[in-house]
Design a protein around this nucleic acid. Structure first.
Lengths: 338, 338
DNA sequence: CAATTGGATGTTTACGTAAACATATCAGGT
DNA sequence: ACCTGATATGTTTACGTAAACATCCAATTG
């Protein structure tokens, strides 16, 4: 196999420009104290030779990689993807690259493995987009002196957590429906092992209780549209059900289909409110009233958080909540006969 | 307690274990020729001190980073995300990490900037998920000796390209509709600057022409559900329109809403076929007949491609097509009166 | 005009790893 | 006992960069 050509190093540039490699380093890093003529010589030599800094050597010397590692379980949920995109954009603005560490199966072993690999990986900080119970066994293997921020979790007592204000958004959704005149609101909940789902359900229940309303039994799905459809078939059979708060938009989509199939008009007979405000929500039949999440802000705060910890060499704890906003569209209205 | 001192190095482990650092290196890399007792001593010392290999030093020495860089424009399209996820999974299996390089604005300047940064970045290979016309000005700044694979492009003459068989899938969709008895098939096309959209439109037209059918004027959207809705309002007014092939599922979603609002029953009056098979497609009203893309296979081939180029130090060209599969659901049926 | 100063540039060194090379040890064959 | 060759381990070195330190030179000053 042909030996691959060595890349152009500072020494090569230095030789070509007739200066020392240290001067090349200074030019490369924009340090002051290099006279213009020399700087130009060096820049010319760089261009002629096609010099590119070797980031491995730089990282070895400086001790930082200018990279943030992201551990997540899946890219198949809207929330994860949009958080990731926001993080990537925000990190790029700060001059940091993003290294992805997908965990195929959400078991503690897999997660621990990911953390271990991450310890050897070229990252200065870590952002975890994951439910916290999966982290529990993994903490020990976290390398010291590395910033960690967790999105989508309740681990504020142990980590710095940035999350959407799940409770506030849910409260808003339920109050919106009650305000329209519905006697109570049913809930199409997310999976039991999701903390986000749990918080949305808790806030739903609490809001109903505060208002002195009856709390119907929640129906549980797994975030997927298909599970929303199955749940919807059951809810369509509940005569007293005039309003449903779905824990995400995908399940709301399935719910709408079930109601449509069963001939229950939305919103004339049943109102539906979702959570997330995915881009397609406005194109559902009918367009979905839903709770908008500001993922961009979540991403920004995650990046700001890890970089702050990195720079101050401090470990932060506590939870930051990003506010939500109710987007009212066509799927919610007054109950029949109101 | 957290040592905020220097990280533990091989030398530290070597001292603790009473061996040379080279022996530690051998144990760390699983080389043979270390006797069991010694190996155990070293492993114990590693664990006691919490040793983690320094990837920067390793990369500097070995010349490889075991990382693949991914340039993409946005994570807001299903296709990109699912391709990315597949690539990440596949790369992880090969022991490679993924570094994300999002390009905020799809201008040539931005893309060139991304490539330049990538040249300084710690990556062994690059996968580009992007339309090729954005790459044109950027090629010069690509570092030598680096594998490149492009997904979603027509640049097979200059790069190694892996893509879904857009033409085959479109042909299958159109033939399915013709086979049901429709006289012709209308097309809800994607944006003009997308090569994928162009190929889907070309194949749609060619299939109609081969069958000797009339070719209605295509209606153009921008991939979004909203644009599909607007296009749908126009198509709903076309009396002869009994079948529509939408270039993606999101636009098909908007189309379904427009048809529903205008009282055109699907599939009794109008049949709709999409492209992508997003997870929600089965929950549309009615469930969407669509062309399934095998993103996992695209990802696998991308990774295999760059790694092969990396290992053989060769530059490959040409296009690899990943087959599609038509998924028939409820949105397509015979035309009225058939 | 010599001494001093400070900016520009060169030299040395260390970062942590692993290949290449060197040495030590020992079993088995004569 | 002596050599042979294999196996286990140690020593040296280089990877590319940038901080720390050293040197040089021109301009300013007493």
């Amino acid at each position: 196999m042909p030996q691959r050509k060595r890349r152009v190093s500072m020494a090569d540039v230095a030789r070509r420009a007739g200066v020392s490699s240290q001067t090349v380093s200074r030019v490369s890093n924009g340090h002051p104290g290099v006279v213009d003529a020399t700087r130009r010589q060096v820049l010319d030599a760089m261009k002629e030779l096609g010099y590119r800094p070797n980031s491995a050597a730089r990282a070895l010397k400086s001790g930082e990689f200018r990279t943030i590692g992201i551990i997540l379980f899946t890219l198949s949920t809207t929330g994860n993807v949009r958080t990731l995109e926001a993080i990537a954009t925000s990190a790029a603005e700060e001059g940091y690259a993003i290294t992805l560490l997908p965990v195929a199966v959400p078991t503690q072993d897999e997660v621990r493995g990911a953390f271990t690999r991450l310890g050897e990986l070229a990252v200065d900080a870590i952002i975890v987009i994951m439910e916290v119970h999966l982290l529990d066994a993994a903490t020990v293997s976290l390398p010291p002196n590395i910033g960690v921020v967790v999105a989508d979790s309740n681990a504020g007592d142990r980590y710095s957590v940035v999350d959407t204000d799940q409770a506030g958004g849910s409260r808003e959704a339920v109050r919106h429906l009650l305000g329209l005149g519905h006697r109570t609101v049913w809930h199409l909940a997310g999976p039991a092992d999701s903390f986000a789902a749990q918080r949305r359900a808790d806030a739903w229940r609490a809001t109903l209780e505060e208002a002195g309303r009856e709390v119907p039994p929640p129906v549980r799905g797994d975030w997927s549209a298909e599970s929303g459809y199955l749940a919807g078939l059951r809810l369509a059979g509940e005569p007293g059900c005039t309003a449903v708060f779905a824990a995400n938009d995908q399940m709301a989509l399935g719910l709408l289909r079930a109601l449509h199939e069963r001939g229950r008009a939305v919103p004339a007979e049943v109102s539906v409110v979702g959570f997330d405000d995915i881009p397609e929500a406005g194109s559902f039949i009918p367009p979905l009233t839903t709770v908008h999440q500001d993922f961009a802000e979540v991403g920004r705060r995650c990046v700001a958080g890890v970089l702050r910890q990195l720079r101050t060499d401090a470990v932060e704890r506590g939870t930051t909540l990003v506010p939500t906003r109710l987007v009212v569209r066509g799927s919610s209205g007054p109950p029949p006969g109101a």
